[in-house]
Design a protein around this nucleic acid. Sequence first.
DNA 1: TTAGGTGCCAAAAGCGCTTTTGGTAGGGCT
DNA 2: AGCCCTACCAAAAGCGCTTTTGGCACCTAA
Lengths: 339, 339
Amino acid sequence: MNLKELSRHLGLSQSTVSRALNGYRDVSADTRERVLEAARRFGYSPNVNAHRLATGQSGAIGIVFPSGNDPLLDPLFTDFLSGLTNSAARRQMDVLVSASFDSAEASYRRLAQRRSVDAVVLSGPLVADPRVSLLDKLDIPYVVHGRTRAPHPYAFLDIDNEGAFRQAAELLIGLGHRRIGLVNGDLRQSFAVDREAGWRSALLAAGLVAPDALNDSDVMTDEAGYRLTAGMLSSETPPTAVICSSIFSAMGACRAIRDRGLAIGSDISVIAHDDGISSIRPETHNPPLTTTFSSIHKAGERIAEMVADLLGGKAASASQEVWPVDLIFRDSTRPPARA
Amino acid sequence: MNLKELSRHLGLSQSTVSRALNGYRDVSADTRERVLEAARRFGYSPNVNAHRLATGQSGAIGIVFPSGNDPLLDPLFTDFLSGLTNSAARRQMDVLVSASFDSAEASYRRLAQRRSVDAVVLSGPLVADPRVSLLDKLDIPYVVHGRTRAPHPYAFLDIDNEGAFRQAAELLIGLGHRRIGLVNGDLRQSFAVDREAGWRSALLAAGLVAPDALNDSDVMTDEAGYRLTAGMLSSETPPTAVICSSIFSAMGACRAIRDRGLAIGSDISVIAHDDGISSIRPETHNPPLTTTFSSIHKAGERIAEMVADLLGGKAASASQEVWPVDLIFRDSTRPPARA
DNA sequence: TTAGGTGCCAAAAGCGCTTTTGGTAGGGCT
DNA sequence: AGCCCTACCAAAAGCGCTTTTGGCACCTAA
């Protein structure tokens, strides 16, 4: 059942039926009702490919997966994608996931040139990310989840990573900690750099040093969290508290602490960044973990809205948001044990 | 730059250029080379929407997200999707993720009717999943990741859940365990039912009972794993070993065991199912966890191939695979402590 | 009365491809 | 010479929609 058949059934022209369905005003309320009713009855729904060809819009948001079994590809992505997709669906848009089986650049170029998506979202930006310049050059609207160094304004949604980790460090300092470790994510990603900056500035502001021995980074897995934390604990000046960049790193950090016969909270304080994924909740741990919290799902939802705004003509420079991060105090942070 | 311009530049007709680009044979090698060269030089790539309208194919595989913040929506999905997308990209296909902001049924119906995808993959099938009949009725090719009850043949890729959990239970029985707990996933999903069957059959075959007190199920989160395991451990006849349906449940199970002052391995044996996600690896735990292992990433890759085969005309009844599951013995499984 | 709206609708021209149709030129065969 | 076959290519007809164009009828204001 297509437009032509439907209009023949109704005894109307294709254009009238099309206008009726799309809510234009040059159609009487009466005619419109008849058309809508018939469309329902015949189970008509427009061919999306024809619609796209005619309008020049694809009605889809693109996002590119890192290729292969990338360790950066973490479970958080699901939650983000879920939010993005939900919110996009509410605006009649789809999300097209594309893999970079050759290079990420090639994928973006393909998406842009073939016009298979109207806009793309870029997640996990690096400190200076060539993809941003590329997208700018390709002249396709885009929103970055995070921030990067770029010579031009661009639309982004980021959380206040620096502020969050500064606050976390300040909390620990306030409790009396002096040696605070940072178990960070991969430093090529800009959020990790921002978090380090937050951690460092809190320490320096308190007149403390921010030693390299207490500042380490790697992928945000349980295993790496364990390894980094174990390394710090066996250093000459072990930390009395650690701040972890993800709930996964924190799981590893907690194991490392326990394996050393120490107790979380009373011996070593732990703060983790929590993106709000449901499979691991910090509040159900023993002891419940203090966290910096920001829902990555909500970020995905908001980004779809921002994309829609951008497509609606909003300027990229007006589409920049930095979300504050909640610091949620639980039992894994206590004053340091008396040395 | 479109086909028309390109062909004008070359002094050829659109059809010839099209045929040259698409590798038909009615074009001389010489002409083809000229065309390809020009396409490269002008950076021409075909408009995907026009291509789709003309061919009636969308070149995309659809997959529907569960709506909202569904707890079934777990991090495993990312890995699956990543595999699917990679493999699809190798075949020039995209993956369209669609959300069900109203109902899942409506989403599938939309995808099918608007012809925005050529095929869909259905993941996380329920024991008797209405979506499968729906897809069958909608007459769109589909591949199920998992199995379900259906009156007609359908394409699927599943792992041998029953066999895996039977083997796991047999291993524990062989070590001398008599009370083996099952920390299962949501029983609405068919893999959970299969795993229970495997667990049960191993116990019965060994002349043991499969008591309800040692058989519990819930979402596969750390929290639920903790709760279920803690429940079993405080029952009248606590298990000496538990089998967990996911690495996340297993994390919770391990916590519950430790919180009770027991040691994993020597006091309580633990086996987990491992889907191979990188953020939590069972082999790096202390002690390393014995697992039933099957890469969900690879499953995603294979399913994209199956979709391609299906679109190429292969019968659904010939597209059915059940993958064996590896049982990887590590240190979390030992003979039970003497009572 | 007449010019100018306005509400309604049909016809037709695109959107950028693929694919069918048909036609020409040359070579081999009878 | 006459025929068919093959290799190559152009023209044109779709694919199913949107949007422009224009036409008709009726109504209002000058």
